[in-house]
Computed example of a mutant assay.
Amino acid sequence: MTSIGENVINIRNLQMSFGNKQVLKGINLDVGKGQIIGYIGPNGAGKSTTIKIILGLLEGYSGTVEIFGQDISEGDVQYKRKIGYVPEIAEIYDNLTAREYITFIGELYGLDAEEADTKAQKLMKILGIEQVYDTRITSYSKGMKQKVLIISSLLHNPDILFLDEPLSGLDANSVIVVKEIFAQLAAQGKTIFYSSHIMDVVEKISNRIVLINHGEIVADGSFDELRQKCMEGSLEQIFNQLTGFNEHQSLAREFVSIVEKEQ
């Protein structure tokens, strides 16, 4: 059992290249129990690569990645039973019903099929989609599929949860409920890695924000700490300052001028 304050993730000098392109250039990161980390950066900055390495989905990196004090390169994959993952683009088996899919995922994580089924039904009801439990997922809306993914990622009560745009497609009420679920999980000591392009959501739910740009960490701290350091008001403004993106106004003006231009 991980004690309070102990790190659950330790990353040292993590580097990764695809061909001649170096995607990660020496990531150093310690993540403690109960933290909600907003892991943000521009497209291609290395966010997904970092997470996929931690999940054991990518090999060929250099450096050290330890989960619960264990070096993942040693080949013992038992740590994966303590991890949940909601990918940005899910290859969900939508020819299955939610009952079939979630029970299958639960069994992969070592749950008994009956236990997984019982928990899934209760969680589906809380998120307002119990009426489609035995309906094929192919008929679901994007938001309903997202709820199924969130449920399947949490069914086995993981200690670390990786979330890539988890609120995508959810209605306003569901967003409020799911954000509160994340907050209560963190309060119970769960660690949450949260990646999103919606800066105001990251700003509100994260107690620590890690900004990666061009394969390197360029900022790490609470929102208030980053705001004091950068003298900016919002996370979006901080993001733009640290990543050097300051063309949004001129690009928007050009776009609008083309739209308004008479033929």
Score class of each variant (00 low, 15 high):
residue 85 Y to E: 08
residue 182 F to G: 07
residue 232 E to P: 07
residue 153 S to T: 01
residue 191 T to P: 06
residue 154 L to E: 00
residue 116 A to D: 13
residue 202 V to Q: 14
residue 213 N to M: 10
residue 248 H to D: 12
residue 45 A to R: 02
residue 104 F to M: 14
residue 119 K to G: 01
residue 66 E to P: 03
residue 168 S to L: 06
residue 255 F to W: 07
residue 192 I to F: 05
residue 102 I to F: 01
residue 112 D to S: 09
residue 101 Y to S: 06
residue 6 E to T: 00
residue 78 Q to I: 00
residue 149 L to R: 04
residue 50 T to M: 05
residue 256 V to G: 02
residue 98 A to K: 11
residue 212 I to H: 13
residue 148 V to W: 12
residue 126 I to Q: 11
residue 1 M to D: 10
residue 204 K to D: 15
residue 196 S to G: 10
residue 119 K to L: 11
residue 9 I to M: 11
residue 54 I to Q: 12
residue 114 E to C: 07
residue 105 I to D: 05
residue 28 N to W: 12
residue 41 G to E: 14
residue 67 I to K: 04
residue 77 V to R: 13
residue 197 H to Y: 12
residue 93 Y to D: 05
residue 182 F to I: 09
residue 145 K to S: 01
residue 45 A to T: 01
residue 131 Q to V: 05
residue 219 A to G: 08
residue 174 S to V: 02
residue 111 L to I: 01
residue 83 I to F: 05
residue 214 H to E: 15
residue 198 I to D: 14
residue 70 Q to I: 05
residue 18 F to P: 04
residue 176 I to Q: 15
residue 91 E to L: 13
residue 101 Y to P: 05
residue 76 D to H: 06
residue 13 N to W: 13
residue 147 K to C: 06
residue 76 D to R: 07
residue 205 I to C: 12
residue 139 S to E: 07
residue 73 S to L: 03
residue 225 E to K: 00
residue 228 Q to G: 00
residue 256 V to T: 03
residue 90 A to M: 11
residue 106 G to Q: 03
residue 105 I to R: 14
residue 131 Q to I: 06
residue 113 A to H: 07
residue 19 G to P: 00
residue 19 G to V: 01
residue 98 A to D: 08
residue 81 R to E: 03
residue 88 E to H: 07
residue 250 S to Y: 11
residue 127 L to F: 15
residue 25 K to R: 15
residue 37 I to A: 05
residue 234 S to G: 13
residue 164 D to Y: 02
residue 197 H to R: 06
residue 199 M to P: 10
residue 243 T to E: 10
residue 159 D to C: 00
residue 82 K to T: 00
residue 94 D to Y: 03
residue 106 G to S: 08
residue 229 K to S: 08
residue 262 E to A: 12
residue 128 G to P: 13
residue 262 E to W: 05
residue 64 T to E: 14
residue 243 T to F: 03
residue 8 V to G: 06
residue 36 I to E: 10
residue 40 I to L: 12
residue 198 I to G: 14
residue 6 E to P: 00
residue 1 M to T: 05
residue 193 F to C: 04
residue 176 I to M: 15
residue 17 S to A: 15
residue 214 H to I: 03
residue 77 V to N: 15
residue 66 E to Q: 13
residue 68 F to K: 04
residue 124 M to H: 11
residue 8 V to W: 09
residue 150 I to K: 09
residue 237 Q to F: 02
residue 260 E to K: 14
residue 3 S to A: 14
residue 229 K to C: 01
residue 99 R to T: 02
residue 223 F to I: 04
residue 9 I to D: 03
residue 174 S to H: 07
residue 225 E to S: 00
residue 226 L to I: 00
residue 66 E to F: 04
residue 165 E to D: 06
residue 246 N to F: 01
residue 139 S to A: 13
residue 25 K to E: 12
residue 166 P to Y: 09
residue 129 I to W: 13
residue 210 V to H: 09
residue 182 F to Q: 09
residue 127 L to Q: 07
residue 82 K to L: 10
residue 192 I to E: 00
residue 166 P to E: 04
